[in-house]
Nucleic acid binder design. Structure first.
Length: 458
DNA sequence: ATCGGACCCCCG
DNA sequence: GGGGGTCCGA
């Protein structure tokens, strides 16, 4: 095991048990910030497969959790607002963070054992498992999960991500501002390459979204018809359960949503379907991803396609028939029969392996982890000269540029080189590129950063 | 009960 | 035109 990056603690964990690159971008959660780390350390080869290539950050209620990953280790640290903590207190906080990680990533579930079972039962799965290891279901906060998936109708991952982040910025105060991670370790002492800070917002509580004017505000933020759904759902929750202040800062409505974990799947589903903007598919996503209903398979057009292609579900692959309740049940029960009691987890592996953003993901031998980080031989001086001449992307040409940059990012994540002429579209957005609250310098810097990566890939 | 159509916005 | 749907009215 390599020594942890400064400030990080190490948790031994095989990348085949958890692949952050896959799990955090496959459309379960939409709030993680992702930072490429380019190993440009002069004199050493960056492509050793052992050092993390990305940092991932999520803002919780009271802290920002930062993660990095290598083949056999998960590195974690958390940052809290306020003055620096004593050593003892810091240890205590990190112990809490570790407990949160175990819960959020459901680390007690042996994913490799599940893959083995699924492979035995299903030849289609067998064909993909090697290339798509480490894909597991998260155990998310139910309220965040519910609101996020109300946003998902007629939508794609990139826009959902944008919307959820805008929602947090609008309706929850920033917990803390943090600089993005240094490009490389040797950058941390170099003021000229110091990264800029950005604010981290937790997900807002139900009471913050319940006021009637929230609907029009969200419309203004580009939520479309989902704006009313979100406001009305939050209002229903608040009216049914109140906003009584409690010690923990957790609202009664949130506690009630948590309590659905103890209900049967069908009872919990029935409760979720009462909300506006929540149909069968969204309800099933919440059941699977935050309410412990591991057997539930959310059926969308994509899963429908998979079921028709590989599992003998009726309908022609080009017929865009509307998803009727009857068809939904047919798809769902057929796949459930194949995969067993963790069917929802198996579905996520297949779903992710079919995502366009991940379509090149599997071609490497160790797909769970970006294999060969580009072996960049850029001197510190060269790097600075690149940074000093940001291409002032004008809008028409800039759009294409951005597309290429996005593809390059996906390629890094997916551990696969992309041809510049690739027609693949990207579902994974480049963090903060469209963040209107961010200074232009930040955008430029970010773009430049990835441009380096694109160059390195050639 | 089942069946289309509209819906808001973004992007190819 | 279509996208990880849902609502509403025949």
């Amino acid at each position: 095991m390599i020594t942890p990056p400064a400030g990080f603690r190490a948790l031994p964990l095989s990348i085949t048990q958890l692949s952050l690159a896959a799990v955090l971008q496959c459309g379960q959660s939409f709030r993680w910030n992702i930072f490429p780390l380019l190993s440009l350390a002069s004199g050493t080869s960056g492509a050793d497969n052992l050092h993390p290539t990305h940092e991932y950050r999520l803002c919780l209620r009271d802290r920002v959790v930062c993660l990095r990953q290598s083949l056999d280790t998960l590195f974690y640290r958390s940052v809290l607002p306020g003055p620096p903590l004593s050593r003892t207190l810091q240890d205590e906080r990190e112990a809490e963070t570790l407990a949160w990680l175990r819960d959020y990533f459901q680390l007690d579930v042996d994913l490799e054992a599940l893959y083995e079972q699924w492979g035995k039962r299903d030849s289609v799965f067998m064909n993909r498992q090697q290339r798509f290891s480490g894909i597991r279901v998260l155990r998310q906060d139910p309220f965040e999960n519910l609101i996020s998936f109300i946003c998902s109708s007629n939508n794609n991952i990139a826009r959902i991500t944008k919307m959820v982040k805008a929602l947090c910025r609008q309706y929850s105060p920033a917990l803390i501002a943090l600089p993005s991670p240094a490009l490389t370790d040797d950058d941390s002492n170099d003021p000229s390459t110091q990264e800029l800070t950005e604010a981290y917002h937790p997900f807002p509580p139900p009471s913050a979204l319940a006021a009637p004017e929230v609907a029009s505000t969200l419309r203004g933020l580009g939520f479309g018809y989902r704006a009313e759904f979100i406001q009305r759902t939050a209002q229903m929750l608040v009216e049914a359960h109140g906003v009584a202040a409690s010690e923990s800062g957790v609202e009664p409505a949130e506690k009630w949503l948590h309590s659905l974990r103890k209900m049967s799947t069908s009872d919990a589903r029935e409760e979720l379907l009462k909300f506006v903007g929540v149909g069968r598919k969204v309800a099933d996503c919440v059941l699977l991803m935050s309410l412990d209903k591991r057997e539930v398979i959310p059926v969308d057009t994509h899963v429908h396609q998979i079921a028709m292609k590989h599992y003998g579900v009726s309908g022609s692959s080009k017929a865009k028939s509307n998803m009727t309740p009857k068809l939904y049940d047919e798809v769902s029960s057929k796949l459930a029969a194949v995969w067993g009691d963790y069917a929802g987890w198996a579905h996520l592996v297949l779903f992710t392996s079919d995502l366009k953003s991940f379509s090149s993901y599997g071609l490497s031998t160790t797909a769970a982890f970006p294999k060969a980080q580009p072996d960049v031989k850029i001197t510190s001086r060269q790097r600075k000269s690149v940074l000093a001449t940001p291409s002032a992307t004008p809008s028409p040409a800039g759009k294409r540029k951005r597309k290429q940059v996005q593809e390059a990012t996906v390629a890094i994540i997916a551990n696969e080189k992309v041809e510049s002429s690739s027609t693949q579209h990207s579902d994974v957005e480049l963090p903060a590129l469209d963040d209107s609250s961010m200074a232009d310098r930040v955008k430029r810097r970010r773009r430049v950063k990835v441009t380096i990566a694109a160059v390195a890939l050639k």
